[in-house]
Design a binder for these strands. Structure first.
Ligand code: MN
Ligand code: MN
Ligand code: MN
Ligand code: MN
Lengths: 215, 215
DNA sequence: TAATTTTGTTTTGCTAATCTAACTTTATAG
DNA sequence: CTATAAAGTTAGATTAGCAAAACAAAATTA
């Protein structure tokens, strides 16, 4: 078994690799808020366990085994978020923090039961795909709202920021997954996007638009 | 905040004090499967945090603060067991192991939601009382089945062993909480109890009868 | 290409949780 | 009331996870 700390490192490596392609010690260090020497020594430990390919001064890379382990943690996290929302009645801005802890529970029985009760959901409340029991993960390539052009009509399918501050910002604007918006303007200078949906018109800053994925 | 380890020590101290009155380092050591020197040093740490009264060579005792902390962990454990059974559909022999981990989740929101969904249950699936948010715990004084006499009719209200082996033994005999049994015989020599319930007759060993609490 | 800055590693050291071996205190038996 | 046994503590190690300081490599700039 892996420790909670190890699981968090694996998950972070998976996310950062997905997001940036290449992960350096410094990037991981900042992401986890852990100093570089600590990260270096953890990478050596994970390399000993054959979960990470590690060579001094080279980018970090999960091994095949490491990817699988990371995905099992991600699976537990996302199933939990879905469970918290659908079964327990939490709202989408409350689930991430709790899931951050429950993802480390060691009980296949527990998570399989969640999966069953939820009828094998494909995505979590933020639109991120849930890996299956085999660790397979289908990542649909979605565009950012901030990359859309005037007059396009798109559906909000996922958010890449799960902090409660961000989600409450969306709540105020009644933006949820599934909301279909039409872009009526993109500001030349600051790239603020103006969208229309459900008979409303709202402006979305470039920062926020960059964290909304659409289809 | 306390570590998982500290929480487990506090819970163990609470249970053993309830069961034995006085708790020694050796008893706690055996119960937790941790060597005595380790227990001694943890007791010193908990004493520094004012959770335990500790004096060399004297019995261990939780402080008022320690009792409260212990009960909050017990509350989380028992709410979780109830939730696993009633909401998720686990059986009573599956819940303890999972609850042993979830009891360490730090999220009042999460446990309050469980409490609400369960409509503020008074006891867990094994009949043990659930402390309230203030840490108050009503312990009804129940008798052991093994202490009952011939011709008494009593209701099974709680079990003091929550291992799956023990509970499956009861499952085979269709003994659940609420089962009303009449004692038809107590063996003179080995104290095996013969009981009748639901038109069936079964023998219950002294060992098992000592772990069934009745009213 | 040489100097400087940035990035990453090594060394050293800390706290938490555990153990074994040696020692001390308390309890028990003769 | 000693002598022995049982229970508990102290001392010294180990492993996990972390960080500060010193050092080394790589990247950038001039
Ligand atoms: Mn999340
Ligand atoms: Mn986590
Ligand atoms: Mn239990
Ligand atoms: Mn526990």
């Amino acid at each position: 078994m892996n420790t909670v700390t190890e699981e968090n490192y694996l998950k972070a490596l998976h996310h950062l690799a997905d997001e940036l392609g290449e992960v350096n010690v410094g990037v991981l260090s900042k992401h986890l808020n852990i100093k570089m020497p600590t990260v270096t020594s953890m990478m050596k430990k994970l390399a000993d366990k054959e979960l990470v390919h590690y060579e001094s001064y080279k980018p970090l890379k999960l091994t095949e085994k490491g990817v699988l382990k990371a995905r099992m943690v991600i699976r537990k996290h996302r199933l939990t978020e879905m469970f918290l929302e659908k079964v327990m009645g939490f709202s989408w801005e409350e689930v991430h923090e709790i899931a951050e802890q429950i993802e480390h529970i060691n009980s296949p029985l527990f998570f399989d039961k969640m999966d069953e009760l939820l009828e094998y959901p494909k995505a979590d409340p933020h639109g991120s795909p849930i890996p299956n029991r085999a660790g397979e993960l289908v990542m649909e390539k979605l565009r950012k709202l901030s990359d859309c052009l005037v007059n396009e009509t798109v559906e909000i399918c996922a958010v890449t920021n799960t902090t409660s501050g961000f989600l409450q910002h969306l709540n105020l604007r009644a933006i949820t997954l599934g909301t279909v918006v039409t872009i009526t303007n993109v500001d030349d200078y600051d790239k603020t996007v103006t969208v229309t949906y459900n008979e409303k018109t709202t402006t979305i800053s470039a920062m926020v638009g960059g964290q909304l994925l659409v289809r």
